[in-house]
Design a protein around this nucleic acid. Sequence first.
DNA 1: GATCTTCTATTTGTCTGAGTATATCCCGAG
DNA 2: CTCGGGATATACTCAGACAAATAGAAGATC
Lengths: 228, 228
Amino acid sequence: MSTERIHQAIARALGTAILMGRHRPGDSLEGEIESAGALHVSRTAYREAIRILVAKGMLESRPKAGTRVTPRGRWNLLDPDVLAWAFSGDPDEPFIAGLFELRGIIEPAAAALAALRRDEKQLAAMADALEGMRVHGLASEAGQAADQDFHRAILEATHNDALASLASSVGAAVRWTTRFKQRHAALPRDPLPDHESVFTAIAARNETGAREAMARLLHLALADMERS
Amino acid sequence: MSTERIHQAIARALGTAILMGRHRPGDSLEGEIESAGALHVSRTAYREAIRILVAKGMLESRPKAGTRVTPRGRWNLLDPDVLAWAFSGDPDEPFIAGLFELRGIIEPAAAALAALRRDEKQLAAMADALEGMRVHGLASEAGQAADQDFHRAILEATHNDALASLASSVGAAVRWTTRFKQRHAALPRDPLPDHESVFTAIAARNETGAREAMARLLHLALADMERS
DNA sequence: GATCTTCTATTTGTCTGAGTATATCCCGAG
DNA sequence: CTCGGGATATACTCAGACAAATAGAAGATC
């Protein structure tokens, strides 16, 4: 595990502070010298952190005007880092719901496309992931990673780069829902059969079957989650 | 129009070079001193550019190992800046198709949700955008902006932040499809009625009607585009 | 021979301090 | 009241030095 650099740490701290509402849209940050001094870091490191947050759409800075938080609509909420920051503290309940809703829109359609376009290699990746879930179980870290791999493989099997780039966002949602479920009830239902039916439909090039199986999987997962 | 900063310019140049395949995944960049020297800029500015591209998932850099291009699957292709860079040169034909396919998945579902959840303010925004399209026409810059505003208003009316953050990606697709159509045939069909039927369905809180109207709009737009 | 450990050299990361450029704000003219 | 033009605060860029970390080689151990 690579050690975190100073600019990464500052970007993470500032990013989470913004996501948690400690800095609100329109708020102006202190000047570079004051801010860097307050954090006991050089202006260089501080500026690179700012550059990261600007790249993620959360800040904008101009000479004389200063650096300020952009309106929430411009934030790249689906950026992997931003998602990680958002989930590092208290999970924002309505945001999780929204992310899950997005899954409900994307994944059934992606499963249908995957049934049409998947090649053998991607099918093998799905099988491997399924095997990983079976062996490790969803309670373990490895099992959850396999779960994410399964969903990622489906998105990649669509052969659509734009869709595939949503994999990390969907993966974050996947990770969070399972963690959420486990916190309250001790894994009330085995989700493996749901995943297997999606897999067999995709393997059989059954477009509507894959769509419906994925929709069913998500529906059941949502039901499990709401029982908390 | 704000003048472009040096680090922005370098990030844009390097980003487009990567997107166009001039630097391929796994390739290592020259060291910071050589690269900055070759561009006649300071290491500071060059490093901030690198930081931007790392934030967008296109580069990774570690001491001793150098800075290298990440595998394509990690690029944030839906990031507004990355999309702008991708569209600045030759538009990558299959990528545009993928983006359009994503629209086809997201927008009908979003329209359905918007029909259920829209409030008066968002409805007014859609009406304004529609009026803008009517007045300026889709040939003008203002008309195209109004078109994007319409689609953005629908995504915002879902009251789902994750969905709304796809607005800029969808907007880029919208902009590019109209530009693509206009290049070949001189606007073969008036898309305004299609938009109006989506609007009336959303105004009437007609969920399935909105979904179908949006699907029809996209279907027709796709047909127009393929006639090139 | 293969694997683990240690060392080192290369590359990014961080710091300091100075100077530049730009956009906001204010003020004065029309 | 509107518009233009300058003062000023702020981010931006530069230069050069030092620190930290790690990939890769050399060596030690089994």
